[in-house]
Simulated assay, not measured.
Amino acid sequence: MSIEDYQRITRLNIQEFQQFRESIGRKAQECGLTEDKLNELLSNAIKTLSKEPIEE
C-alpha cells in the first residue's frame, strides 16, 4: 500500500468517525442528555467499576 493510499484511507476513517460521533451527540441531545447528566452517569460508572474486584 502506498503512503498516499494509507493517508487517504486514514483521512476517510477519521471523517467517518467524526460524522458518527456528531450523529450520536445529536441523538443524545434530542433524547435529553445534557453535559451534567453525562458527567453524572460517568461518575457513577467510575464509582461502580472501582468497587468491583480486580480479576487476575
Rank of each mutant, 00 (worst) to 15 (best):
R21V: 05
K51E: 11
N44H: 08
M1T: 03
E30F: 05
N44G: 14
I3E: 03
E22R: 11
N39T: 08
K37V: 15
C31R: 12
L42F: 09
Q18D: 11
Q18S: 00
S23C: 13
I54T: 09
R21I: 03
Y6L: 08
I54F: 07
L12E: 06
S23G: 14
I24A: 14
I24L: 15
L49F: 00
T10A: 05
E40K: 13
K27F: 14
F20M: 12
F20S: 03
E30L: 12
E35H: 02
I54W: 04
K47I: 11
G25A: 12
Y6S: 07
A45I: 02
Q18R: 08
A28W: 13
T48M: 07
R26E: 05
L42R: 07
N44A: 10
L33Q: 00
S2Q: 08
T48H: 03
E56G: 00
E52F: 04
R11K: 06
T10G: 00
D36A: 13
S43C: 11
R21C: 01
E4F: 00
Q19V: 08
S23H: 14
E40N: 15
R11V: 05
F17R: 15
Q15C: 02
C31I: 07
Q7Y: 03
E4L: 06
I46P: 00
T10S: 01
S2M: 04
I46H: 14
Q15T: 03
S23M: 05
D36Q: 14
F17I: 10
Q29L: 13
E4P: 05
Y6K: 08
L49A: 04
A45D: 02
E35C: 05
S23I: 03
I14A: 11
E35M: 00
T10R: 00
S43E: 09
N13M: 05
D5Q: 12
R26T: 00
M1K: 00
E55F: 10
I9R: 01
K47C: 01
L33C: 04
L49P: 00
K47R: 15
E22W: 00
L42W: 11
E40D: 13
L41C: 11
L33W: 15
K27S: 04
I46C: 04
E40V: 02
I46Y: 09
L41I: 15
T34Y: 10
S23F: 13
I9Y: 10
I14G: 02
Q7T: 02
I3M: 15
I14V: 07
Q18I: 10
D5W: 06
R11M: 01
P53Q: 10
I24E: 08
N44C: 14
I46A: 13
R8I: 06
I9V: 12
K27P: 06
S23L: 06
R21P: 03
F20P: 05
K51M: 12
N13G: 07
L33Y: 08
S43H: 15
A28Q: 09
K37T: 07
Q7L: 05
L12C: 06
E40W: 13
R11Q: 07
Q15P: 01
N39C: 15
R8T: 11
R26I: 05
